[in-house]
Lab assay of single mutants.
Amino acid sequence: LKTAGVNTTDKEMEVLHLRNVSFEDAGEYTCLAGNSIGLSHHSAWLTVLEALEERPAVMTSPLYLEIIIYCTGAFLISCMVGSVIVYKMKSGTKKSDFHSQMAVHKLAKSIPLRRQVTVSADSSASMNSGVLLVRPSRLSSSGTPMLAGVSEYELPEDPRWELPRDRLVLGKPLGEGCFGQVVLAEAIGLDKDKPNRVTKVAVKMLKSDATEKDLSDLISEMEMMKMIGKHKNIINLLGACTQDGPLYVIVEYASKGNLREYLQARRPPGLEYCYNPSHNPEEQLSSKDLVSCAYQVARGMEYLASKKCIHRDLAARNVLVTEDNVMKIADFGLARDIHHIDYYKKTTNGRLPVKWMAPEALFDRIYTHQSDVWSFGVLLWEIFTLGGSPYPGVPVEELFKLLKEGHRMDKPSNCTNELYMMMRDCWHAVPSQRPTFKQLVEDLDRIVALTSNQEYLDLSMPLDQYSPSFPDTRSSTCSSGEDSVFSHEPLPEEPCLPRHPAQLANGGLKRR
C-alpha cells in the first residue's frame, strides 16, 4: 500500500477492503520488508465503517432481458387475439339477427356486388357501394332449370318492384348476347291500381351458361335502374322476379327496335343500305322527324346527366323506338370495365364501338358527360344519314391518327348547316368547349319548333354512299384517289349506291 502524500496522485493510491473487522481494529498499520540489502516499511491507516445491508444481486445478463421482452410480447399478442375474438363473436351475433329477418339465414357465401355510379365530372372515377344484393341458397326452386355456371341464388325481396312469376307470361326471344337474352312477355297487374291490365314488356334474363359475374352484372344493372328513376326518353324498369327461380328483370318494350335499324328501314327506295329491288320502305321521314329523334335522345341524356350517370356507349344501336315513335335510351345501367376495353373487338352487330368514342376516352380512358356529348355528335350523324356507319372504310389504326390530326366527318347530304355545326361543336377537341346536354336540348327544341312538318328529305341527293353492312375495317380495292379515307367507291362485286358527282362522300373527313 502506498501512503497518500504531497507527490502522490489518486491513481497511485490503493485501497484495500477488509471484511470481518471490528471498531477496535482501527488504527495505523505498518508493513515491514527487508533483505540483505536493507529494510523498508510503509504505513497505512485502517478505517472501520459500519456494515452495509446486503441486497440480492440483480440479473442483468442479456438472457434475462430477452426473457422479459418475449414474455411482454406474448402477453400483448394474447390481449389482441382475445379482443378480435370477442369482436367477431359480437358482430356475428348481429349479422345472424339481420339475416334471420331477411329469411336467408341458411346461406353459405355471398357474391360481392358493387353498384357502380359514375359521379366525377372530369374523370372516370366511380363510387362503389358494397351493398350485398344477392346471396346463394341451398334451396332449389321447382319447375325452373338450374344454371350451369351459377347455382340457385336467393335475393332479398323488394316489394316496390317484385312481380309474382305467375303473372308473367314469357314469349318469343327479342335478342341475346354472350350470356344474357331478352324475350318478349306479357305482364299482368304491373299497375297496382289496375291488377288485371296486360302490358307487353321485355324481360332480361341469363342464359344457361351464365357465370356468377353475369348474374352480378344483371343485378347491378337492375339496381342502377331503380336508383336513376323514370323518364320518358329512357328504358324504364317496370319490375322484377327475384324469388323462387331465376332472376327476371322486366323493362319497357320498344316494338320498333333500335334507332339504327328504324332509320335504315325508312330509307327511300333505291337508297337503302343494302340493295333490294323488292324493298318496301316504312313511312317516309321528314326533316322534323329526324330533328325530333335527336331532341328526344338529348332529353334522355340530359336526364341521365342530372342523375350523375355517364353512359359511355351512346349510339343509335343503343336507342330503342316504341310503337308511338318515342326514343328511349337503353343500356345506361350496364357495368362496363373501362380499363379492359378491346379497341379492335367488334360488337355483336359488327360495329366498332371506338368510332363513337371521344379522343380523351379513346386515348386516356377518361369518361365524362362531355365524352358522352362527343358520342351524341356521332349519333346525330347516324340520324341524318338514316343509319349510316361512321368513318366507313377507315381502319382503327388510321382512325386514331386522323382524330389526333383533327379530322372530322363531313356534313351529311340531308343536314342543315346549323345541325352540322352542332355536330362539329360536339366533336370539339377540348371537352370543356363542347355543349352540355342542357344546351343541346334548348337548341334542338328551337330547331324542332322552326322546322315544318312538310319538309321531307331531299331525294335528289344520296343519303349515304356507303354500305354499312360491310365491315368498317375493310380497305376498299376500288376507292377513288389515293386515300380511301376521303372517298369510298362501290366494290365491283357488290351493289352500292351511285356516287353523286358534285357531292363529297358523306363519310369523308374534314380537318377541324
Rank of each mutant, 00 (worst) to 15 (best):
D166N: 14
R167I: 06
L168P: 14
L170V: 06
G171C: 09
G171R: 12
G171V: 14
G175R: 06
G175A: 01
G177S: 07
C178F: 07
F179Y: 05
Q181R: 04
V182G: 02
A185V: 02
E186V: 04
E186K: 05
I188F: 13
D191Y: 05
D191E: 05
K192R: 14
D193G: 11
D193V: 09
N196S: 04
N196K: 10
V198L: 11
K200E: 12
A202G: 08
A202S: 12
K204N: 06
M205R: 07
M205K: 08
L206V: 09
K207E: 01
T211S: 07
E212V: 05
E212Q: 03
K213E: 14
L215M: 07
I219V: 10
I219M: 08
S220P: 04
M222R: 14
M224I: 15
M225R: 01
M225L: 14
K226T: 14
G229E: 14
K230N: 06
H231N: 04
H231D: 14
N233T: 14
N233H: 09
N236K: 15
A240D: 11
A240P: 01
A240G: 05
T242M: 04
Q243L: 12
D244G: 13
P246A: 08
L247M: 12
Y248F: 10
V249L: 15
I250N: 01
Y253D: 00
G257R: 07
N258Y: 00
N258S: 07
L259Q: 00
Q264P: 01
Q264L: 09
R266Q: 04
R267K: 02
P268S: 03
P269Q: 05
P269R: 14
L271R: 06
Y273S: 04
C274Y: 07
C274F: 11
N276H: 07
H279D: 03
Q284H: 07
S286T: 11
S287P: 15
S287Y: 15
K288T: 05
V297M: 01
R299G: 14
M301R: 00
K307Q: 11
K308T: 04
C309G: 04
D313E: 00
N318K: 00
L320V: 10
L320P: 01
D324H: 07
K328E: 07
K328T: 14
D331V: 01
G333V: 03
L334R: 01
I341N: 07
T348A: 08
N349D: 05
L352R: 02
M357K: 15
A358E: 03
P359A: 03
A361P: 03
F363S: 07
F363Y: 11
T368A: 05
H369L: 15
S371I: 03
S375F: 03
S375C: 10
G377E: 02
G377W: 06
V378E: 14
W381C: 14
E382K: 06
E382Q: 03
E382V: 02
S389F: 03
P390Q: 02
G393S: 05
P395T: 05
P395A: 13
L399I: 12
L399H: 14
F400V: 14
F400I: 04
F400C: 14
K404T: 08
G406V: 00
H407N: 05
D410Y: 12
K411T: 12
S413T: 09
N414D: 10
C415R: 00
C415F: 00
L419R: 00
M423K: 00
D425V: 08
A429P: 12
A429S: 08
V430M: 08
P431T: 01
S432A: 05
P435A: 01
F437C: 01
F437I: 10
Q439E: 11
E442V: 09
D443N: 08
L444P: 01
I447T: 05
I447L: 12
T451I: 14
N453K: 11
Q454R: 13
E455D: 07
L457P: 11
S460F: 05
M461L: 06
M461K: 06
P462R: 09
P462S: 07
Y466D: 07
Y466H: 08
S469I: 09
S469T: 05
P471R: 10
D472Y: 06
D472H: 10
T473A: 13
T473I: 05
S476A: 14
T477K: 14
S479Y: 15
S480P: 15
G481R: 15
E482V: 12
D483H: 15
